[in-house]
Design a protein around this nucleic acid. Structure first.
Length: 393
DNA sequence: TCTGGGGTCCTAGGACCC
DNA sequence: TCTGGGGTCCTAGGACCC
């Protein structure tokens, strides 16, 4: 029996759990404090009831937020990650769920060694209650024969009060449940594939499950075939372990457009410093760097320019000073005078473990003093907060 | 005035090998 | 007229996820 656990309105729930006085109030979390360029990322149930939606730019609803007394919180991703780790930890210690893995910051998968629906329900309710008691985060739980069907079950757990947050989707109820679910709400069916499927008359999840293999493989790719199997109760999805990220990126849309090279360079330096910190935290080195810049795509009155460049490094590194230097050179390749830049970012790729990586022909001994400098800087920032020390350029 | 940020996987086509 | 055949690896772009 596969189990899926999904935190409700996660970012908003984290704020309510950690800031006194927010309970029962309409709360939205935005990637900004509400004065700049943010959009709504998450909403409490009370905020949803006001008709607010995820993805709306704050400036469009500024008056409504004020009139309805909505609390706007700035997203704190460090907080959300740390609460997520606590949830992970408490479920692992409880020991009911097996093969427990984190799928995203607010979702978890696992298995249960029991099959009988009432018993499954009892176990999963214990897990749900434990998460609430220890973290004050409400969750929805779904159980079924495959990961995808477990996510379908979670959908029902969240949308029908009668389930009280736990839905066990047994084979005899599978068809009925799938007939009530739009095909676009199935895990793995995005906007593009939904259009293809609907064009072929496949509208509900049940239509997809009952479609012929040939038709499905023509309309979707191999990932789509896995989804098709899972909907029919045949496990086909394997969760890769994400112990080490394969790419690390930071990017940002600027509240005020930037025109000069130095302005962009300064942003990119801060992005790459943060990437390098993450890189070292997970014990990795990167061997590829990508830098990109974009103008404002919403302003058709302004000339548009979007460009990016990637370089492969001679040897993998996690050294901030080295990456700062690289990024500066890369910006020179793509920076053009005369544009108003709205967004820029850095992506580190080609990530390898920092032990036993391939040295190139010309590598002398690694610079021990530089490595220790990074270690000390990371240590200070861990202890006294991010950006307590940074690289002056 | 103001429109997010961070990921993974798959595939087609090109470059290269013998 | 006729222009080999069988591979691997890498990358960019597009699909998906949260």
């Amino acid at each position: 029996m596969y189990v899926h656990i999904d935190c409700n309105s996660y970012f908003a729930s984290c704020e309510i759990a950690t800031r006194p006085g927010l309970e029962g109030k309409p709360v939205v979390v935005a990637n900004d404090d509400g004065n700049g360029t943010g959009v709504i990322l998450a909403l409490s149930a009370e905020a949803k009831a006001l008709g607010l939606k995820r993805g709306i730019p704050l400036f469009k609803v500024r008056d409504k937020l004020k009139a309805d007394g909505v609390v706007v919180c700035k997203a704190d991703h460090y907080k959300y990650r740390s609460i997520s780790e606590n949830i992970m930890q408490c479920v692992l210690e409880q020991g009911i769920v097996q093969d427990f893995v984190q799928y995203s910051v607010d979702e978890f998968f696992g298995t249960l060694p029991v099959e009988e629906p009432a018993e499954v329900r009892r176990y999963v309710t214990m897990v749900k209650d434990l998460i609430w008691e220890q973290n004050h985060i409400p969750v929805g739980c779904g159980c079924s024969q495959t990961y995808t069907l477990a996510k379908v079950a979670t959908h029902f757990a969240k949308h029908y009060r009668g389930y009280r947050g736990v839905c066990v989707l047994t084979p005899d109820k599978r068809e009925r449940a799938l007939s009530l679910l739009k095909v676009g709400d199935v895990w793995g069916v995005g906007r593009q594939n939904r259009r293809h499927l609907e064009g072929a008359g496949i509208v509900t999840a049940l239509d997809l499950a009952n479609a012929g293999q040939e038709m499905v493989s023509r309309l979707l790719n191999t990932a789509g075939m896995r989804t098709w199997n899972e909907l029919r109760g045949i496990p086909a999805v394997t969760l890769s372990n994400h112990e080490r990220q394969k790419s690390i990126s930071h990017s940002h849309s600027f509240p005020v457009m930037i025109t000069d090279r130095e302005g962009l360079a300064s942003e990119l330096r801060s992005f790459v410093s943060r990437c390098a910190t993450t890189l070292r935290r997970q014990g990795s080195l990167c061997s590829m760097v990508t830098v990109f810049v974009n103008t404002n795509r919403y302003r058709d009155d302004l000339p548009q320019y979007n460009n990016g460049v990637s370089v492969r490094l001679a040897k993998p590194t996690a050294d901030t000073t080295e990456l700062l230097h690289t990024v500066g050179n890369m910006l020179d390749q793509i920076y053009r005078k005369g544009y108003q830049y709205k967004r820029a970012g850095v992506i580190l790729g080609g990530i390898v473990s920092d032990e036993g990586h391939q040295l190139d022909l010309f590598t002398v001994e690694a610079d021990e003093r530089r490595r220790r400098l990074m270690e000390v800087a990371d240590g200070i920032n861990r202890r006294f907060g991010r950006n307590s020390v940074a690289f002056g350029i």
